[in-house]
Design a protein around this nucleic acid. Sequence first.
DNA 1: CGACGATTTGAAATCAGTCAAGAGCAGTGG
DNA 2: CCACTGCTCTTGACTGATTTCAAATCGTCG
Lengths: 248, 248
Amino acid sequence: MSTQPQTLLPMLRKLQLWMDLDEQDQRAVLTLPHSTKRLGAHQYIVRDGEKPTHSCLLLRGFAYRHKVTGDGGRQIMSIHMKGDVVDLQNSLLRRSDHNVQALTNIEVAYIPVECVRNLAFDRPNVGQAMWYETLVDASIFREWTLNVGRRDARTRTAHMLCEFAMRLKVAGLGEQLDYELPMTQDQLADALGLTPVHVNRTLKALEAAELIERTRRSVKIVNWEALAAVGDFDPNYLHLEPELTSGG
Amino acid sequence: MSTQPQTLLPMLRKLQLWMDLDEQDQRAVLTLPHSTKRLGAHQYIVRDGEKPTHSCLLLRGFAYRHKVTGDGGRQIMSIHMKGDVVDLQNSLLRRSDHNVQALTNIEVAYIPVECVRNLAFDRPNVGQAMWYETLVDASIFREWTLNVGRRDARTRTAHMLCEFAMRLKVAGLGEQLDYELPMTQDQLADALGLTPVHVNRTLKALEAAELIERTRRSVKIVNWEALAAVGDFDPNYLHLEPELTSGG
DNA sequence: CGACGATTTGAAATCAGTCAAGAGCAGTGG
DNA sequence: CCACTGCTCTTGACTGATTTCAAATCGTCG
């Protein structure tokens, strides 16, 4: 357990997206006890059914949440990047109800659940920021449900490419319009509720329509306006405008 | 604004599913200022884009959350019943990102957002119960995403019938195996990400397989085990086992 | 009875899935 | 430097689940 103040900076940054935090609040976040660890791609951070003992802050790389059906179908529910506390969703529950897995090589900080919980209630502004964060996560889940339930393959795929672009930019990773896509087409398919084959064809179609260009693992959005239109993308659900002021 | 102590009892009951609350906590919940109102079916409780000023407790009847795509497709994200605070999800956000609408005639209690927020931080056990509730909501969203993204029409439909059965029982509304389904097939279709026509055929198929019987608006589950198997239904995601003890 | 909304049914169309094989790329080891 | 291996991506032909369109029936309520 270390208390190196700079390690948890990405978490503070993320929380401050939602809420102004005063110096004491900031210190309280940064001095949370934690230990860091590196994990390889595909390793599990949280397993469905396990009891969570730590919350897990993503410091580097990408991770994803998913659930699996009885016959082995996998649905990816969200992608996470630097600064996301990937199991604020799970860690207050007695049993985790889904998996979180490393998408790339990652570095994480484990924080004991108790400390997170205590921080939330000792420092209401921090607590509110964390609550806010879980609400934004839930909002993104809802958008994905809409995406998977009511949009066709082309729209769905374009929508997801737009979301990545915007979230990468907010997290300070790469340009909005030209980015490394950390997922294989298999994983993209599981996020979109499609088959890998169809994802491939759909990406090609978007490319043929001159909305994107791509190489093996990178995407360049050639025409943002058009892609957002095709993808029925309205970023409101990401709740990115500054919202709350300290003191509520 | 009244403070009639019995009105908010369904909310207290629901919160106590998640967390033991002492007498002071209970009193604090029950004495929240509020006003009650009746709404007819189809009326809006919350509209996408509006600023929420009140949280809204459902006292009687059913409501549903939904989002709409640019071309008019509607996806229902969840169904709510007595005791649910239907926009704990929205009310801390600056702008609501989805709609909540009455499914049947309903009765609601409006509670000023500020009072909910203050209660959460003045009484950490209550706050934790409310947080827990939003996490369970999020868990249900994830299961729905899995349902819509990775299960076929038959499985999907059976799954939803099982979920309703179990949640109605927990809310103290009707029997687990024989209940009034408050939704039209159109609404069911929007919840399942299917067309009404296909929902109709799928229900008929489940009936032909002797898993359910149904009349105009009621469902009787003839063979729970079999329906749960067909529906790939595992209730863990509802987090219904008692979980937390006061003092956490 | 008449009207309206919800349910049911059939036939045809289509989007996405399945199956199967080949090509491209990256890493490994000889 | 090249052959080998494994994984991802790509492509084609075929299949099938679900949608679409359209019309008929049923129920309820005034």
